[in-house]
């Protein structure tokens, strides 16, 4: 890919910027403990926690590891673990 003059791009180019690389701690959902309440998804400031068949999953390409989901989960089903890089 050649760079454009002035960094002008097609719309939606922010997707190229995989902000998941900024993460220090990674949220891991314990699917067994998850009650499917959706609090994690509602509170996620990045909007990267999705419902999949009554449970929840995280898009790690863009999750910055802020830990809000783990803090809000009423079932304690989300653990923040140090990211291995």
């Amino acid at each position: 890919m050649k760079l454009s003059i002035g960094a002008v791009t097609e719309p939606g180019s922010t997707r190229i910027n995989k902000t998941g690389s900024w993460r220090t701690f990674k949220p891991i959902i314990d699917v067994e403990a998850c009650v499917g309440c959706g609090m994690c998804s509602m509170f996620c400031p990045e909007g990267v926690v999705y419902e999949v068949e009554d449970k929840y999953t995280i898009d790690y390409d863009y999750c910055k590891g802020c830990g809000v989901c783990a803090h809000e989960c009423p079932s304690g089903a989300i653990e923040m673990v140090i990211e291995e890089k």
Partner: peptide, 28 residues
Amino acid sequence: PTQYLTPKNPLTFGPIVDPSMYMEFRYM
């Protein structure tokens, strides 16, 4: 202009550029 804003052909002016490419834009 080589590239310009128009509703007919939307473009992004001023996207975030991360450490992998910022220096190249300064060089340009």
